[in-house]
Amino acid sequence: MYPRQIPETRPVARLAYAACVWIVLAVWLLPVFAIMLTALRTLEDVMAGNYWGWPDRINLWGNLVAVFTQTDMLRYFLNSLIITLPSTALVLILSTMTGYVLARHRFPGATLLFATFIAGNFMPQQVFMIPVRDLMVSLGLYDTFGALIIFHVAFQTGFATLFMRNFIAALPNELFQAARAEGASPGQVLVQIVVPLVRPALAALSILLFTFIWNDYFWAIVLTQTDAVKPVTAGLANLRGEWASSWNVISAATLFVAIPPVVMFFLMQRHFVAGLTMGAVKG
């Protein structure tokens, strides 16, 4: 391994090294601690300018109650779930189908198609803003969950197709030859061979997609207007305007918004990292 490992025979050096890493980590996460500490404070404490000292009184509960009763964060939170969960599921289904065809079937234009998926996926999303907004207005979908779901599914299908295509292309060729020799149709191959084998890829992909879609802010402000459909990221940004100096409440709301992706990440960390690095590192 590189860098050279500190040997087990030098426990003190190992301990010292770990301590150094944790100090660097503490600096790295300082902004997060600041928000956590502030979420514990009372408004008087914030007003008195106690930003970095220990809170004079623990008021986390009070701040959370304020977030839930005096703001619409709970509504926004549900909206985010209503947008994120079906979008993720749809992308998984569509990209398994497209990824399978691109990985296992040769046809004219396949490379061009693949390149288009990559290029579309890397484009700054602002490039699509005007036409997509216009499209949703003319379909009567502007300011509905449908607008956000359709856009997210279309956009993420590009990335997800890439991902699934690479995974399915790396599956052992013999399986497919055997299936073909037995006269299995492409549909049967997909259902009986591909789907059971791509489960790890789907797990990795689903957590990535969930995080991407949950954290979206741009489309939330471009395609929605009313509180009834606004997701939690747009809600948080609004809150900053309305609660300008109540940093204790804003901080509590910030933590609340971050909970789902952070929890998902810690539950499925292995998949998350595998997902992000798949394709990047081919040995």
Binding site: L94, M97, P131, A154, G158
Partner: peptide
């Protein structure tokens, strides 16, 4: 079958993403 499997994802992507980029 491959064409049918490809169609939904591809159409959505072409209409919403590629077409939008050109229309911009």
């Amino acid at each position: 079958t491959p064409a049918l499997l490809l169609a939904p994802g591809l159409l959505l992507f072409l209409v919403v993403i590629v077409f939008s980029a050109l229309r911009t």
